[in-house]
Design a protein around this nucleic acid. Structure first.
Lengths: 110, 110
DNA sequence: CGAATGTTTGCAAGTTTAGCCAAATGGGCA
DNA sequence: TGCCCATTTGGCTAAACTTGCAAACATTCG
């Protein structure tokens, strides 16, 4: 794989990596189904230090998954692309597939 | 976020994290568009140590994205779910969106 | 069996990431 | 201006990830 090709995959991996964390996944999911939220609201939902949540949001913003907008003293974040829900659907497929295979191992012979 | 909810997102994040690496993304992409490949073929395409590629494949297998099958001396890997291409499509959307915004910053005023 | 080929695993070093506390910044308001 | 609230950033430590080399395993072939 030449440097150019690697760079292409690296750019894509960065975006995926931004979602590869439980808290960030939760944040994306929450923004996807409930619309824009300010950092304080999200922090309360997550239940972690506000600085931690802020950093997670900064990571998502850095790769272009979310965008922020200041409203007075608060900063609101919202999804920038809709298709992230496809991620969830596919992940569900994998989990479901895993479950089916695990059950097969329990019930029948290898 | 209670422990149960966190565990749910954690399980999903693990699957996403498996794809959050340039080499593994390449491997998934290759398997998606060219079908099953053995470790040696993939190793040559990637251009890294075979032990490294083997480990990456093991990670993908560990979360259920790929499965392996021995054929004589070689081990062939193949995708276990089709929808991973949705990942790529969405990532492209994000990249495209980023590009549009960058151009807007260049051309017009903030 | 012994050699050759293909793959996985143990190990060690270097790099990255997550989380918290404290300090700094930005905006609204008396 | 000075204070308060919301958010971000710096600094630090512990944990996780990545990688190549070498050794161990697996399988085929002579």
């Amino acid at each position: 794989m030449d440097a150019n090709t690697f760079a292409k995959y690296e750019a894509r991996a960065k975006i995926i990596k931004a979602m590869a964390h439980p808290t960030r996944l939760f944040l994306v999911d929450e923004l996807a189904r409930s619309g824009p939220r300010c950092v304080c609201e999200l922090t309360e939902m997550v239940g972690a230090d506000i600085s931690t949540v802020s950093r997670h949001l900064a990571i998502l913003k850095g790769v272009g998954i979310v965008e922020d907008q200041r409203r007075g003293a608060q900063v609101y974040y919202r999804l920038r692309v809709q298709c992230v829900l496809d991620f969830f659907n596919c992940v569900e497929s994998v989990l479901k597939c895993n479950l089916v295979d695990q059950r097969r191992l329990l019930v029948s012979e290898p």
